[in-house]
């Protein structure tokens, strides 16, 4: 599943960059994230409990940040698996400076879903991924506004 979009934040680019690479911020902003523990440089173990209405799934996996080019670009590699299936994906984030106080986050990626959730949840995949992205940016904006 291809994912592509952009979000404009009223925060200077450097600050957005720091937030996006801060495990503490990610842990709060990633929907359902229960734990994000560093295991190396730009390498984290993650536990997420995804909940959507009555649907719940526990996923464990890892996050890798690659090709990190502050404050412009990085690649996010994510792998997670649980009883209901697995999710693997790569995303490319590009931060565009719109003004001193405005930043556009461009994201583009490919998510591969497997196992049971892939075979039963087709109808809900697209909206779920879009909703998770929305939630992520809502939380991110909230965190940034606190700073």
């Amino acid at each position: 599943m291809k994912i592509k979009g952009q979000q404009t934040l009223t925060t200077p680019r450097e600050q957005v960059w720091e937030a996006l690479l801060d495990p503490g911020v990610l842990a709060r902003a990633l929907p359902g994230c229960q734990a994000l523990d560093p295991v190396g440089e730009n390498h984290y173990k993650i536990r997420m409990k995804l909940a959507l209405a009555a649907v719940q799934g526990l996923f464990e996996g890892k996050i890798l940040l690659q090709d990190v080019q502050p404050p412009n670009n990085y690649k996010l590699h994510i792998e997670g698996a649980g009883k209901v299936g697995f999710v693997n994906g790569e995303g490319h984030f590009h931060l565009e400076k719109l003004s001193d106080v405005e930043t556009v986050v461009h994201y583009e990626g490919d998510v591969r879903i497997g196992g049971m959730i892939a075979s039963v949840g087709q109808r809900l995949m697209d909206m779920t991924s879009k909703m998770m992205i929305r939630k992520f940016f809502v939380s991110l904006k909230e965190i940034l506004s606190e700073q």
Partner: peptide, 14 residues
């Protein structure tokens, strides 16, 4: 099936 061989029509909902 997806390119990865994942079944995408696994129930009568799809």
């Amino acid at each position: 099936f997806s390119e990865d061989g994942q079944l995408l029509t696994g129930t009568f909902m799809d």
